[in-house]
Write a protein that binds this DNA or RNA. Structure first.
Lengths: 229, 229
DNA sequence: CGATCTTGTCATACGGTGGTAACAATAAAC
DNA sequence: GTTTATTGTTACCACCGTATGACAAGATCG
């Protein structure tokens, strides 16, 4: 299982160190910064799977960071957990309305924060939490790198596997070839758009067992989508 | 926009009534029950979009309901927001680990709960949070590139899809052929004005299922408008 | 180091889509 | 009612986007 990557934005150094230690013990990759502006840069560079954001940090305020993360297309979908001072309900509501996925009220125990982060990740990226993805009759177990359909095991190449996993994490949505390249090949990969077609073809071939319908939908002039048939 | 359906499981009658009232005012459909066992039945029958669950209810305990909802395939993916007594961290963590998506600590304000429910729904079901365009009986989901009318799925070519999307983003307004060319074909496209007519025709054909009225209104010597029939 | 798999690119075939013109139908003008 | 302007409808064919198989370079593994 790949370690989920966290971006921790917290200017209380001792708290930040404690959290970093605890999360790494739980198997996360942690990138930490005390500075709001740097956080925005890191969010773009590192493409974290989740951001833990203190309401009050140096540089740019937490809520402003939240807003900007949401506005930038690269980071718009990254889940955010906010740390807020105790009892300030207005702040909490404002945070949620700005696009935070969750908040935890200080003081909190690391254990609670870990549980919350786990819950959010489970909700947003089941594969990262070690769960099995299931769309229609296809099951994908990210942990063991296995794919089955109707109980039969399927054989896929590495790229096809990542492609399928990405699709199954976002069933029904249409992705352009460019988006798929970014998501599956990595941002900035200098690959021909048409190459996606070929891997779609290979994926289709790999998940077809006779009599089964094709879950990959071609959306002309837009891209591809994956859905239960 | 379709009203998200909530299942509210709460045995404090006055609180339940208050919440039901407030959520309905926010445009939700609310089904409420004070009883845990009945909640499980309702969850299956009603297929709610989200469950609000009190930790302590009559019949079966909240955490047990949570577990069973998760175990049943029909309801395994319905997001759950738990209401917990104040300060009991163990309970909260246990709730999250059992599969609740969120919890709110009593006492809370209805406004806060509403914000949280909204945040969870936005995450889990973007379509319910307004990513879907809806005019009259026609629904257009941009993310999945799907158009339905009265629940029936419609098949449109790419250009007709963009044309319909543009219309549905500005219902009721009249657009000249030139404006439509700019908006749908892109500024500076060197296309005959009359071509718009043909695509209007194709759009009309594509969204007509027998007995349905035509939402595209011709405004002679001005252009076209789209409106609910 | 050799054998096998994987992967990115290309060439080609195929089918859908789109723009245009030509003609029919309809609404406005007189 | 006749004329004229505007829109509706159909047919056509070029073109664009997608599917597919082949191939060579690279990666992986023994």
């Amino acid at each position: 299982m790949p370690s989920p990557r966290l971006l921790l934005v917290e200017d209380d150094t001792s708290l930040a160190e404690l959290l970093q230690y605890r999360f790494e013990a739980e198997g996360y990759d942690v990138v930490a910064t005390p500075d709001g502006d740097e956080a925005l840069l890191l969010a773009n560079e590192q493409a974290p799977d989740l951001v833990i954001l203190d309401w009050m940090v140096e540089g740019t305020s937490g809520i402003e960071i939240c807003r900007r993360l949401r506005r930038d297309k690269e980071t718009a979908h990254v889940p955010i957990v906010m740390l807020t001072a105790r009892g300030n309900e207005d702040d909490r509501i404002r945070g949620l309305e700005t696009g935070a996925d969750d908040y935890v009220t200080k003081p909190f125990s690391p254990r609670e924060l870990i549980a919350r982060v786990g819950a959010v990740l489970r909700r947003v990226r089941p594969a990262l939490a070690g769960e099995m993805l299931e769309v229609g009759d296809i099951k994908l177990d990210a942990t063991s790198h296995r794919v089955t359909r109707r109980g039969q095991s399927l054989q896929l190449g590495p790229t096809e596997f990542r492609l399928l996993k990405f699709f199954m994490e976002h069933p029904g949505r249409v992705f352009s070839r460019g988006q798929l390249l970014d998501a599956v090949w990595g941002t900035g990969s200098d690959i021909e758009l048409r190459t996606v077609d070929v891997h779609i073809r290979r994926l289709r071939k790999g998940i077809t067992l006779d009599g089964s319908k094709d879950p990959v939908r071609t959306v002309r002039s837009a891209g591809y989508a994956f859905e239960s048939v």
